[in-house]
């Protein structure tokens, strides 16, 4: 699966794609990016959450497109007036492109969240900053702990029959705070006595860096460089001006499309291989 690449390689890939998606203002590139992310989502996510995501995106797109003319009155082609303010065609189109840009980032971040679970994030940070990674992993463990502590304290308090709801919540939360602060001192003393922070200690990680990760990084770096070189922006104000299609810009669009389709193509390839291997058995 695509998410089984080394987290470092995956992170580099996401930085490339998001870098171009967040800052580009070219409907062709944005559409290509959205398609790549949508195909990947359709392949990996549950149907229900995909529909929810797409519904939200459609809503955002409409809101942004329709409200943009209210905020910017630039543009040559006036459609009509609201309270002496011009509503222009250009502002409407700009809003649509803005909507595309926003939902593209939303969908890509959805992909990012599904791939980067806490384990991958901690692995990634562990390379750069082991202490921050430790804090992250401890925090993620503490949160469900504290919530369940709170629930048991709160239930007991309720059964005793004490106080109003709000007061009970606050008292129970205060108990959780005391408990966890005292435990933190004990935990850190225990860590210290077991030799945390001594020199020469290594960390275990289950992710390895293999040839396919290197190939993946090289391919995405080349595609990223090509799409940066060939990238063009559309101009919207005062009137819409599409950049002329030169060889460069065509290469740029193609390489970004290819870059954003990598996860989908990889999943497709693995899926086909899986089907094929079943039929042989």
């Amino acid at each position: 699966m695509f998410k089984n690449f080394n987290p470092i390689a995956l992170f580099i890939y996401f930085v490339y794609v998001l870098f171009i998606s967040v800052f580009s203002f070219n409907p062709i590139i944005l559409t290509a990016g959205i398609l790549g992310a949508v195909f990947y989502c359709l392949f990996t996510l549950e149907k229900k959450s995909v529909f929810k995501l797409f519904g939200f995106c459609a809503f955002m797109f409409l809101i942004i497109t329709l409200t943009n003319p209210l905020f910017s009155h630039n543009g040559r082609t006036v459609l009509f007036f609201i309270n002496d303010n011009r509503v222009t065609f250009e502002a409407l189109v700009y809003g649509a492109v803005l909507g595309l840009a926003v939902i593209e980032v939303l969908i890509w971040f959805k992909c990012f969240s599904t791939i980067f679970d806490s384990e991958r994030i901690i692995f990634l940070f562990g390379k750069i900053s082991p202490k921050t990674a430790l804090v992250l992993s401890m925090t993620l463990r503490f949160i469900p702990n504290f919530v369940s502590n709170f629930k048991s304290i709160n239930t007991t308090q309720r059964l005793i029959g004490s106080d109003s709801r709000i007061k009970r919540y606050l008292n129970s939360f205060s108990a959780v705070i005391t408990q966890s602060l005292e435990n933190s001192v004990i935990t850190s003393d225990s860590m210290k006595s077991r030799g945390y922070g001594l020199k020469g200690r290594t960390f275990y990680s289950r992710f390895r860096f293999s040839t396919r990760d290197i190939v993946f990084i090289i391919i995405s770096t080349v595609l990223f460089a090509l799409s940066i070189i060939g990238r063009t922006d559309f101009v919207f104000y005062p009137s819409i001006d599409a950049p002329s299609l030169s060889g460069f810009s065509i290469i740029g669009c193609f390489s970004f499309s290819a870059l954003s389709l990598i996860p989908f193509i990889y999943e497709l390839k693995e899926g086909i291989r899986w089907k094929y291997s079943i039929s042989k058995i």
């Binding site: 202490k131 430790l134 804090v135 401890m138 925090t139 503490f142 949160i143 702990n145 504290f146 919530v147 709170f150 959780v176 705070i177 966890s180 602060l181 435990n183 933190s184 001192v185 935990t187 850190s188 860590m191 210290k192 945390y196 922070g197």
Partner: peptide, 16 residues
């Protein structure tokens, strides 16, 4: 070490 654990506890308390 104390600061590390304390930071984790405070962050976890605010999110929890």
């Amino acid at each position: 070490t104390r600061r590390i654990v304390l930071l984790a506890v405070m962050t976890a308390l605010s999110v929890a």
